[in-house]
């Protein structure tokens, strides 16, 4: 304590104080912010929820999906897509679509809170049954077999999403998005509903345990520090070559020019 007091007028003290303050405030915001709050478990659905969901739907979705969710020329019918689809599309900010394009993109921030999303999901479920919100037990990926998940990932996902989930290109501007730092629930829902170009991996195709393992593997990749240094985005040899010719080779040439300039 004495040492701390002695250094209180050190020029770096102000900066240190600022850093501590920013981390505290930022951390508190991150913990308390409504956007980050993950909802656990399948929500209880009531008639009020459906009613509230319908209101939200009419205000935000009906332009494209029709007043009764029956679909229009610009948007598909929502009967039977299920709560999982709504939770994924709205929860990742893909819907409501900002503008028509080749593919709906993940956007931040998400414009609805989880309660509103659940209400819309309840309304869409009332149009026709479909895949529900996944059980937190599987969607969290907790306790999954990482290595088995990796194998399942390489068999089913890597051809589009890349070996490390860095994403990949599809035809005509479509793409498989990167899978870094995605909530387990959304990964699960994407597998069950097959959004956009993605195929559906239903429960007989990949059982809930397999899906849990895939999520566990992806979360392992998120947390696992790359052992060999900077991973260059895990884009394979193209990333390596990009770094090599733009940074490593200029450094090497710079060394040659520098030494060449030195009078012998």
């Amino acid at each position: 304590m004495k040492a701390l007091a002695a250094r209180r007028r050190h020029p770096a003290a102000l900066i240190a104080l600022l850093v501590v303050g920013l981390i505290t405030v930022g951390g508190l915001f991150a913990v308390l912010s409504p956007m980050q709050r993950a909802q656990a478990g399948a929500p209880q659905v009531s008639a009020q929820d459906v009613e509230a969901g319908k209101k939200l739907f009419l205000a935000n979705c009906a332009t494209c999906h029709g007043a009764n969710g029956q679909g229009t020329k610009t948007g598909p019918s929502l009967a039977g897509v299920g709560a999982a689809s709504v939770d994924f599309q709205v929860g990742t900010g893909r819907m409501p679509l900002a503008a028509p394009g080749v593919q709906a993109q993940r956007t931040e921030p998400v414009y609805f809170n989880q309660t509103q999303i659940d209400q819309m999901a309840a309304y869409v479920t009332s149009l026709g049954p479909g895949p529900g919100i996944p059980d937190e037990k599987y969607a969290s990926g907790q306790g999954g077999n990482i290595a088995r998940g990796g194998e399942i990932f390489r068999v089913n996902c890597a051809m589009c999403h890349n070996f490390a989930g860095s994403g990949g290109a599809l035809t005509r501007g479509k793409y498989a998005p990167p899978l870094k730092d995605i909530e387990g629930k959304h990964i699960y829902e994407a597998m069950v509903t097959g959004p956009q170009s993605m195929p559906v991996f239903n429960e007989t195709n990949l059982d809930p345990e397999a899906k849990r393992d895939v999520i566990a593997y992806l979360h392992f990749l998120d947390k696992n520090e790359n052992p060999g240094g900077h991973a260059l985005g895990n884009f394979g040899p193209v990333g390596d070559g990009f770094f090599f010719w733009l940074i490593a080779i200029p450094v090497m040439l710079g060394a040659a020019v520098w030494l060449g300039k030195k009078a012998a």
Binding site: R154, V155, H230, L232, F235, P237
Partner: peptide, 28 residues
């Protein structure tokens, strides 16, 4: 070499002729 990974073999997994990954390219 100390700062930048090249060919992270552990990410690719073992070879299986039925599989392929996006970004399968040769070295430059």
């Amino acid at each position: 070499s100390a700062l930048v990974t090249i060919n992270p073999v552990w990410m690719y997994g073992p070879y299986d002729p039925s599989l392929v990954t996006a970004d399968s390219q040769p070295d430059w």
